[in-house]
Amino acid sequence: MSFPSAPRANPLHLLAAFATGGLLSLAVFINGEAARYGGPMFSSWLAHGVGMVVSAIVLAVIWRRQRAAKAAAESEAGKAPLWAYIGGVLGAATVMLTSTAVNSPLALAGTLALGLVGQVVLSLAADFWGLLGLPKRRLGWRDGAAVLLIGGGSLVIILFGLG
């Protein structure tokens, strides 16, 4: 089983990914409010429960199209391996780890900064080796410079910009 190499990002991708990040910052704020009422576990449980119901409803409404798209995808990429279904387990574990770290001397800034380092390191490895059945991508100097600028800029904001 092999997949084509992932192409470069174009402006549409850039916009979509940037908007996805913006959505994330809004979701983090909203889920943080839920955690103020019932703690991080309740917040994550609520977000997953609501997400499950909402996605099920949308799927039901457009099921005919989704089923056809799934059949086409399966004939191209094969059936998904069983481990492809554990994303939710990993997400649940993430919540527990971060909510523990946030309540340590690391606080929010330290937790975010270290989490960012972890994200960048594993992304580099994932592209380099094509981890978990996703396309490999050759990394060039532009990727390195983008990592330094975006990673560095984010650290400046997290460590000095907020508060």
Partner: peptide, 22 residues
């Protein structure tokens, strides 16, 4: 996005959106 632009670009651009919008 992930299979279209790869892991590094996804991570960087999502973080960019999160930080700037944040």
């Amino acid at each position: 996005l992930l299979p279209r632009i790869g892991a590094v670009n996804s991570t960087l651009l999502v973080i960019a959106g999160q930080m700037v919008c944040g």
